[in-house]
Design a protein around this nucleic acid. Sequence first.
DNA 1: TGTCTATATTGACACCCGTCAATTCCCGGT
DNA 2: ACCGGGAATTGACGGGTGTCAATATAGACA
Lengths: 119, 119
Amino acid sequence: MSNSRVELPVLAPEVVPCCPPLTSAELSEADAVKTAAMFKALGDPVRLRLFSKVASHPGGEACVCDVQDVGVSQPTVSHHLKKLREAGLLASERRGTWVYYRVEPSVLAALARLLDLNR
Amino acid sequence: MSNSRVELPVLAPEVVPCCPPLTSAELSEADAVKTAAMFKALGDPVRLRLFSKVASHPGGEACVCDVQDVGVSQPTVSHHLKKLREAGLLASERRGTWVYYRVEPSVLAALARLLDLNR
DNA sequence: TGTCTATATTGACACCCGTCAATTCCCGGT
DNA sequence: ACCGGGAATTGACGGGTGTCAATATAGACA
C-alpha cells in the first residue's frame, strides 16, 4: 500500500482554536457547542486521569501501556482514549507494536485561555 | 417551618481548590473525581452559555432573567444553574424578587491553573 | 506461515442526563 | 390576605454514556 499516509487521523479542523476568555464576552451557541465538547471529554474521572497521565508523561507522549492502569478494562481504556482523540485533546500515532498518545497543545491552550481570569 | 435558613446552600468546602497543572503530575483518583465534576458541569452547551453569560455580565453577577434566553424552558435553565452551583462554579443569592448568580473566582482559577501549559 | 502481544471494535446492558409540562415556592405590591 | 411574577421542584420520557466480555485487527518475531 502507498506509504504516503500522513497519519494524524481525526482532529477535525474546526475543533482547534476558539474563543476569548469566558469572563470577557458570552459565547455564541456554535462556539458553546464546540467548546462544551472538549470540557465534556474531560468531564469523566477515568478520561481525566488518562489525559493527565499522557500530559504529565516524560517526553510529552505515552503509549497505552503506560497509562492503562486506571482501574477499568482494556477496551474501556481504548474507548476513552478514542473520545479524547475525537474531542481534539489527544493525538495518536502508531509506531511498531505500540500506539502513542500526546496532548494537542494548541487545544489545551485554548481551553486555558477560555478560563483565564485576568482579563 | 422555621425561617432560620442561612441561605448560600451548596458549594461544599472540598470542591474549592485542587491540583497542580495537568502537565506536571498525574491526578489521583480522588482529585480526578472532584475535578471531572467541574469539567462535566461545563460540558453541556446550554450550561456553558449560561456560565459564560454570568461570567461576562457587567458587575460580575446576573439574575436569572438576564441569562435565561438560551433556547430552553425556564425549568431547564433553573436545572442547569443548579448543576453549575453544585459543581462549585457559581454561587447564588436571592435579593428580593430576583436570584443573582456570580462566578466563584477561586474555582475558575483552579481550573485555569490545571490547564496551564507553561511550566 | 503461525503465534504472541498490543490495541481497537462490536454488541449488550444498566444507568445517567437533558428536556419539558405541571406544579410549587418565595417575595412584593395592592 | 390576596394576587402576580420570578424562580425552583417534581415527575416523566427519550436518548446518550460508561462499562465489560467477546472478538477483531495490526505488527513483531519465530
